[in-house]
């Protein structure tokens, strides 16, 4: 059974945000206006978080870190969900089942990476923008929580395709939209249980670390960076 994982090389990342838009277009995120942005209610499953260690405001050490859902092996969000709307699957993907979600938002609080977002409004697409909607991803109604799915609809399609071609799933058959788009080729996706996969190789790099490892969430998003930062938590 695969264990899907993403590696993000911060040494390669340029902070261009292609992953952010690729995700929004792929996953039917509605266009938000200035008013929703001002209220902090825009939806973005992938975002760039600024980590700025200014030493007394002199030399800024700014790093922009792409943050998708970590798809933790021990996700805190599923423990608090009262209706089992979020569950971890056999292949390690933390799924969100929108029709079950009652919008209590316990999970948004439980997630230490703050990647879960609540739909405050009914999604709207002004004519003719709804023509760009993808049939692979459901449109989320108002009042449910959503988050990065590692584009699991692409896994569904990939499995469908390879089963029709009567062959096993190979590396590269299933890649989320953000990874596919990344111009600096900073993101790699694959199966952490496959000893020959690129993610396994990179996860063993001395540059590898994970966010908030001390919480024991066992995130499956692995970051790479040159030594001096991120190593110590």
């Amino acid at each position: 059974m695969a264990r899907w994982s993403m590696v993000i090389d911060l040494d390669r990342c340029t902070g261009c945000q292609a992953c952010v838009v690729a995700c929004q277009v792929e996953n039917n995120v509605p266009p938000a206006g200035a008013d929703q942005a001002a209220a902090g209610r825009t939806i973005s499953w992938m975002r760039l978080a600024p980590f700025q260690n200014g030493e007394h405001g002199t030399r800024p050490d700014l790093k922009l870190v792409p943050i998708p859902c970590m798809h933790c092996d021990h996700p805190p969000c599923i423990k608090v969900c009262p209706v089992k709307a979020t569950q971890i699957g056999e292949e390690g993907l933390v799924a969100q089942v929108y029709p079950r979600c009652i919008g209590c938002r316990y999970c948004t609080t439980a997630c230490p990476y703050t990647v879960r977002q609540f739909n405050w409004r009914r999604p709207e697409w002004p004519q003719p923008m709804e023509r760009g909607l993808s049939p692979d991803v459901s449109v989320r109604p108002r009042g449910v929580v959503e988050k990065c799915s590692f584009c699991h609809h692409r896994l569904q399609r990939a499995k469908d395709k390879v089963s029709a071609e009567n062959r096993p799933l190979r590396e590269g058959d299933y890649v989320p939209a953000c990874v596919e788009s990344c111009p600096a080729e900073a993101m790699v996706f694959g199966d952490l249980d496959d000893p020959r996969s690129n993610v396994t190789r990179l996860s063993q790099s001395p540059r590898a670390f994970r966010l908030l490892e001390e919480l024991g969430t066992e995130p499956k998003v692995i970051y790479l960076s040159k030594g001096e930062w991120g190593g110590e938590v």
């Binding site: 569950q87 699957g89 799924a95 459901s138 569904q156």
Partner: peptide
């Protein structure tokens, strides 16, 4: 066959 949520739900 798998009954994972993500097997069928998108």
């Amino acid at each position: 066959v798998s009954t994972d949520c993500t097997t069928c739900h998108r």
